[in-house]
């Protein structure tokens, strides 16, 4: 990302802000006839998972009664997700605690790793965010039918709507339900992509204006520092939003409201 401009430096506005999103195959691989090449995206997924596992295991390793800094982080994130589930789904939701925790930490780690210069942001690809969102959507729908049987269909029939309006209202509700994976995935993907693109464009400004002297280059650089801070915030917030919407969908499936 930002400092990648060194690579293409001197080109000024010619830097392609989309270049950072390109998938590069590192090791070509094949499972049967499925292309399973290890790409830069795969690498950063592995790094994100490794970071989460490393943090969790070293954090809890000492099992101290009075937690140190790392253990506090681990415990706080545990309590954070547990409370999120309790507040939004109730105790029935705690069954899905490991999944929501994995989801939140994985997305958060991917988002934050993407902030490091030269790195790759896994979540800036719609196919990844859509796969996550679609998995949640399918899982939640199956859960809804498993818990309520055919009665889950009533979820699409709002209370207090006159019968003659149902042919109109039910399709609207169904479509509204079907948009969930789209809006969930697009939100994460677009936020990550937009943030990184904007940073890239500003980096281009730094180079372009910097070639006229140091002073003109400082202004966009200051902007970039501010934006980077904002992007870190957005990275955390989007992981949070993804997790909390998952909780809300779980609640809908379990309690139908």
């Amino acid at each position: 990302m930002a400092t990648e401009n060194a690579e293409h430096g001197g080109g000024g506005f010619a830097i392609d802000p989309m270049h950072q999103f390109e998938i590069k195959t590192l090791f070509p691989m094949q499972f049967g006839n499925i292309d399973a090449s290890f790409t830069n995206s795969s690498l950063f997924m592995v790094l994100a998972a490794a970071a989460v596992i490393g943090l969790m295991l070293t954090g809890i390793n000492r099992r101290a009664m009075v937690p140190g800094r790392l253990q506090s982080i681990v415990e706080l994130s545990y309590e954070f997700i547990a409370n999120m589930l309790r507040d939004n789904v109730g105790t029935a939701g705690l069954r899905f605690f490991p999944f929501v925790f994995t989801l939140f930490t994985f997305i958060l780690a991917c988002n934050l790793l993407g902030m490091i210069p030269y790195s790759f942001t896994v979540t800036s690809h719609i196919i990844v965010t859509f796969a996550l969102a679609f998995f949640i959507f399918i899982g939640v729908t199956i859960l809804g039918f498993a818990v309520h049987g055919v009665g889950f269909m009533k979820f699409f029939v709002p209370h207090g709507v006159p019968v003659y309006l149902l042919p109109l209202v039910v399709p609207i509700e169904v479509v509204s339900y079907l948009t969930r994976p789209i809006s969930l995935s697009v939100r994460l993907f677009a936020n990550m992509m937009a943030g990184h693109t904007v940073l890239k464009v500003f980096a281009g400004f730094v180079i372009a204006l910097g070639s006229f002297g140091i002073a003109p280059g400082i202004v966009p650089l200051v902007f970039m520092v501010g934006l980077t801070g904002l992007e870190v915030l957005v990275a955390a917030l989007q992981a949070y939003v993804f997790a909390i919407l998952t909780c809300i969908y779980l609640n809908d499936a379990l309690h139908m409201h």
């Binding site: 948009t179 789209i182 809006s183 697009v186 936020n191």
Partner: peptide, 22 residues
């Protein structure tokens, strides 16, 4: 910006899914 963006996403996603089903 965040709120507006989220709302636009919701709207566009609705239209998109509807059109896709059609």
């Amino acid at each position: 910006m965040g709120v507006a963006f989220r709302l636009v996403t919701e709207l566009v996603a609705g239209v998109f899914v509807g059109a896709a089903i059609g």
